[in-house]
Design a protein around this nucleic acid. Structure first.
Length: 505
RNA sequence: GCGGGUGUAGCUUAGUGGUAAAGCACCAGCCUUCCAAGCUGGCUAUGAGGGUUCGAUUCCCUUCACCCGCUCCA
C-alpha cells in the first residue's frame, strides 16, 4: 500500500489541468489558485450536487415532509455598514506582536502586563503574561527575575493601553529573558478592502465579503416578502469569499480567495437543537455519498473558547472534518454546522433600522428566528475529493488513478477508436456527438490505446468505450472499467443507457 | 510575520565563470486489433530583478513562489 503524498497530488493537479498556481507565469501569488479545465468540471459537479441536495431536492424533514429551501446569489460587495453590524469590521482584525528574542508571536489582546505599584516614576518595568496564565505561574516567574511575588502589589494593564504601547522598551515579553523585545502591535486585517467608485478614499471604502452568509441575512426580508416561504425554511447560496489569511497553506485548503456553499436555516429558537442535529446528519450523509470514506471523516464539536462571536450563546458548532494527507493523522475542517442564534438578524435589524421579524400568521406571534448554518467549503470539498480519489497503483502504466465516483468525475467516459484508421474513427465520432449531449465525455483518437487508457486513469474517467473491428460487424463496443481495468462488451447503441445507469450510483 | 529548506523542460535528474545534457512525458507522421510498445521528426528550462565580470545558470545582493516548523485560521 503506497501512501498519498501531497507533493504528488499537487503535481498531478497541475500536470493534468485540475489546479494551477494563480498568475503562474509571473511566479504565482501567495494564497490564490486557478482551476483548470478538469478542475472546473469537478468543482461544478460538486457545486451542482450541493445545489440539488439543498435547493432542488432538499431532504425530507424530521416530520416526514420535504423541507423548504430557496436559492440566492448576492453581491460580493455590500454596504460596509453590513460588515460593521455583522461584527466583522471590529472582530475580524487581530493586533499581533512579535518577540524579537524568542521569535514567538502573540495576539496583543491575549496578553496582559503587570506594573509593580512601588516602581519609581520614570523607572517603570512591566512584565507581560499570557492572559490565561495561572497566578502561581505568574508569581513563580516574577520571583525568578527578582520581582515581588505578591500579585496584589501590581497594577494590571491591557496591551491596548498607551502606557504600555509607549513604553515597550520596558516590557518583558511573556517568554523573554530581556526587556524590550516585543514589537509594536500590527493590525492584521482579515477582510480585503477595496474602493467603490473612481476615487479612493475613506468615504467609499468597501469590503470583499469574508463569508457568503451575510448576503443571505441582508436579503432575509426580501426573500420573505417575495417567496411565500414559511418558517422553518432555508436560503442557500454558493459563491466566492475572501480572507486575508496570515499564512495561506496547504495547497487550496487555506487560500485567500475561496468558494463557499452556505445554507442559513431559519427556525424558532426552541427548535434549533432539533434542526442542528438534523442538518448535521444530512450533511455527513452528503459527503459520504460523494465517496469520502468513513475512516477519513470525523465529526468534532468546537470547544467553547474557539467558538465564533455569533455562536457563543448557542448550541455551538459541530464540524465535519476530513483527514487530508497534510493534516494526517489529524483532520481539517470541511464543513461547520453552527447555531448562529438570532445574532445576525438582530444585529442587522439594530443597525439598519429595518424590522427583520417573522410574523407567524397562524399564531400571530412575532419573533426573530434562530439560524442553523451548514457552511461548507466548495474548494475544500474539491481538495478532499481529489485526495480521496488519488490512488497510487504501481501495477498499471500510469502508476496512479483517480477513483472519483461517476457523479464527481470531470469526464464520465472517453470514446476511443482502437486505431486512427478510417473504419474506427467515424463510428467513435458519432458516439461521441451523441453522448456529449448528456454527459461530459472525451473523444481521443491519437496514439496507442494503452497511452489513452493511462491518461484517462490519471484524470479519473470511470469508463472508456473502445470501437474496434467487431463494432462494424456486430455493433458491439468494449467498456473498460477504470478501477479494475476489466473489459466487457456492450451494444454500441446501449452506451448512453450504460452511463445513465452508472451515474445513479 | 519569524526560523529552516528548495528553485535547471510537464516530470526525474546531469552539468559548467565561455554553445545547457539526457530519460520519460507531450506534439506530428509511420506503424499498431486493447493497457504509457516500436521507428522518424519536433516543442519546451536555469523562478524574477539587480550587482561583480569581457562573459553569470554557476559568485554576491534583493525579491517571488513552494515545502517544513512557529504563529494565525472571527
Amino acid at each position: 500500500m503506497t501512501t498519498k503524498d501531497m507533493k504528488d497530488i499537487v503535481a498531478l493537479c497541475k500536470r493534468r489541468g485540475f489546479v494551477f498556481p494563480a498568475s503562474d507565469i509571473y511566479g504565482g501569488i501567495n494564497g490564490f489558485w486557478d482551476y483548470g479545465p478538469l478542475g472546473v468540471e469537478l468543482k461544478n459537479n460538486l457545486r451542482d450536487l450541493w445545489w440539488k441536495a439543498m435547493v432542488t431536492c432538499p431532504p425530507i424533514g424530521p416530520d416526514g415532509a420535504p423541507v423548504e429551501i430557496v436559492g440566492l446569489d448576492s453581491s460580493i460587495i455590500q454596504n460596509p455598514k453590513a460588515w460593521e453590524a455583522s461584527g466583522h469590521v471590529g472582530g475580524f482584525s487581530d493586533p499581533m506582536m512579535d518577540c524579537k528574542e524568542t521569535k514567538l508571536r502573540y495576539r496583543a489582546d491575549h496578553l496582559v502586563a503587570y506594573l509593580w505599584k512601588k516602581s519609581e516614576p520614570g523607572k517603570e518595568k512591566f512584565v507581560a503574561f499570557h492572559q490565561e496564565a495561572e497566578e502561581e505561574e505568574k508569581s513563580r516567574r516574577l520571583k525568578k527575575i527578582g520581582f515581588s511575588t505578591d500579585l496584589a502589589e501590581y497594577q494590571k494593564y491591557d496591551f491596548n493601553d498607551p502606557a504600555i504601547l509607549g513604553n515597550l522598551a520596558n516590557v518583558l515579553g511573556p517568554d523573554a529573558r530581556e526587556f524590550g523585545t516585543l514589537t509594536e502591535p500590527k493590525q492584521f486585517n482579515l477582510m480585503f478592502h477595496t474602493f467603490v467608485g473612481a476615487t479612493a478614499g475613506e468615504d467609499n471604502k468597501a469590503y470583499l465579503r469574508p463569508e457568503t452568509a451575510q448576503g443571505i441575512f441582508l436579503n432575509f426580508k426580501n426573500v420573505l416578502d417575495s417567496s411565500r416561504v414559511k418558517m422553518p425554511f432555508g436560503i442557500a447560496q454558493i459563491g466566492k469569499a475572501f480572507r486575508n489569511e496570515v499564512t495561506p497553506r496547504n495547497f487550496i485548503f487555506r487560500s485567500r480567495e475561496f468558494e463557499q456553499m452556505e445554507m442559513e436555516w431559519f427556525c424558532k429558537g426552541e427548535d434549533a437543537k432539533k434542526w442542528q442535529d438534523f442538518w448535521f446528519k444530512e450533511r455527513v450523509k452528503f459527503w459520504k455519498s460523494l465517496g469520502l470514506s468513513d475512516e477519513n471523516l470525523q465529526i468534532r464539536n468546537h470547544d467553547q473558547d474557539e467558538l465564533s462571536h455569533y455562536a457563543k450563546a448557542g448550541l455551538g458548532t459541530a464540524d465535519i472534518e476530513y483527514k487530508f494527507p497534510f493534516t494526517a493523522p489529524d483532520f481539517g475542517e470541511l464543513e461547520g454546522i453552527a447555531h448562529r442564534c438570532d445574532f445576525d438578524l438582530t444585529q442587522h435589524q439594530k443597525h439598519s433600522g429595518t424590522k427583520l421579524e417573522y410574523l407567524d400568521q397562524t399564531t400571530n406571534e412575532r419573533y426573530i428566528p434562530h439560524v442553523i448554518e451548514p457552511a461548507a467549503g466548495l474548494t475544500r470539498g474539491v481538495l478532499a475529493l481529489i485526495c480521496e480519489a488519488y490512488t497510487p497503483d504501481p501495477g498499471r502504466p500510469s502508476g496512479v488513478y483517480l477513483n472519483f465516483t461517476p457523479s464527481m468525475a470531470p469526464k464520465k467516459a472517453a470514446i476511443l477508436p482502437l486505431t486512427a484508421k478510417e473504419e474506427h474513427v467515424p463510428t467513435a465520432t458519432k458516439l461521441y456527438l451523441a453522448l456529449r449531449e448528456e454527459f461530459a465525455v472525451d473523444l481521443d483518437v491519437k496514439q496507442n490505446i494503452g497511452k489513452r487508457y493511462a491518461r484517462q486513469d490519471e484524470i479519473g474517467t470511470p469508463y472508456c468505450f473502445t470501437i474496434d473491428n467487431d463494432t462494424a460487424s456486430d455493433g458491439s463496443i468494449t467498456v473498460r472499467e477504470r478501477n479494475t481495468m476489466a473489459q466487457e462488451r456492450i451494444a454500441l447503441d446501449k452506451a448512453g443507457d450504460f452511463l445513465r445507469e452508472k451515474m445513479k450510483g
